[in-house]
Design a protein around this nucleic acid. Structure first.
Lengths: 231, 231
DNA sequence: TAACTTAGTTGAATATTTACACTAAGGTTC
DNA sequence: GAACCTTAGTGTAAATATTCAACTAAGTTA
């Protein structure tokens, strides 16, 4: 290519994932305990090398890592950002391509067995988890949490954390939990209707000791719907 | 680290830039002509290897490339996305970290000399330039143009393409050009005032054969202001 | 069957947006 | 220098959207 071709820099490159799910009190992220140096024994975001033979592209690598750690194959997945520097890994100049994955509560419930050993869900408190984590993963997690909280304001993001089937009241409740404030029921329903990302599951009603509620599902589990305005 | 440590994959990694400026009819992007294989002689987004000794982190690498190609040191710079795949470069599995840079019209005017030879401004028409470009750069450019057009709707982005000093009418005109539609003057001025990213240059007025206009500048040339709603 | 609970809708008061007209401040023309 | 032209900048009334809270609906439980 250029004169640089001879000493073309090949960095250490990993794909790391901030995998989120919903716990009753709010957002949780999946952490794994590192088995080897550096940071052996510390908690970290799950990640791994790109497998040149196995992975066709970056997103495929992210899906592979996700499947290895959780057993889940069809999450909502989006690229967050890439960090790279001389100092973030003691082994040398390294790059991390970070993805955000959102797991449906159904996936979390079903795949308890498929979870990697030494993996653990940790509640998000404020901008991160309460304990130190390896590398610059605390900063990456902070970015991820910021992106998620921001997108709750103007997208269908919370719908991707619920079970496949849910009611409007359940959806509203997740928005309220993630936003940390109450929403008006009628305004909320109007926004959801406008954004047009839900479809009723015909004939399915959630029954309790009161008026039954219509059950809905996402029209598209692979992409977010964006609102014209904040919720 | 893990058993992968022995065959830790080290991809080809470059930092590539979509450098935008304003021409009278709209947005332009800087392309360079490739001197070597692959795609020798083709136009491409400017980019380069990471210099392990010179660059502390990815953004530093992007700034270095930008300075080499344009002479500009203080642009607005933001990371767009990272692509990586087996097939995007014939030399093997490769990664490109793509940045968007916005150049002030003053920078473009002043640094005509500092520009790299074999570099050229190309008008954006629709989603890209009218001619084929190397690698997957057409797709990257399309993403970059999409991000820019989207951010015009809810941010101060167009202000970073103007000369350092400008009037509100000039700013509105850039918004209109990039959006492809006319805006209401009074609503536009209200948005700008709310967003609070402009400061008047005291005593400076743009004079013509009509009422003089107050001259403004950005309060912060390194970051975008985001609006509460679309413009 | 009355009471209770949550689902889902309606509507009046309030705030925001939009469209457009208006005033302001120069230079230019005659 | 007065009338006129052009663009800067502001004001306002009508239309639209949001907010807040009450209302009706449909089930279970006592």
């Amino acid at each position: 290519m250029t004169s640089h071709d001879n000493h073309a820099f090949k960095p250490i490159a990993t794909v790391d994932l901030a995998i989120f799910s919903l716990s009753p009190a709010g957002l949780s992220v999946l952490l794994v305990r590192r088995a080897n140096a550096p940071f052996s024994g510390d908690w970290a975001l799950p990640g791994g090398w790109i497998h040149i033979d196995e992975d066709a592209d970056l997103e495929a690598a992210a899906r592979r890592v996700l499947k290895e750690k959780t057993g889940v194959e069809t999450p909502y997945l989006e690229q967050l950002q890439t960090t790279g520097s001389r100092s973030r890994d003691p082994r040398g100049w390294s790059i991390s391509i970070v993805y955000i994955a959102l797991l449906s509560a159904d996936d979390v419930a079903e795949r308890q067995g498929g979870m990697a050993a030494e993996a653990e869900w940790r509640m998000i408190e404020g901008e991160g988890v309460g304990c130190p984590i390896a590398f610059d993963h605390a900063a990456l997690l902070k970015e991820a949490v910021g992106r998620i909280r921001s997108k709750v304001e103007y997208s269908s993001l919370p719908g991707h954390l619920l079970p496949v089937h849910f009611t409007l009241s359940e959806l509203q409740s997740v928005y309220e939990t993630l936003l940390g404030r109450k929403l008006d029921k009628s305004a909320f329903r109007k926004r959801m209707a406008e954004a047009d990302f839900l479809e009723p599951v015909e004939g399915e009603m959630r029954r309790a000791s009161n008026r039954p509620a219509q059950v809905f599902r996402l029209k598209d589990t692979r992409s977010l719907a964006l609102f014209d305005r904040t919720i």
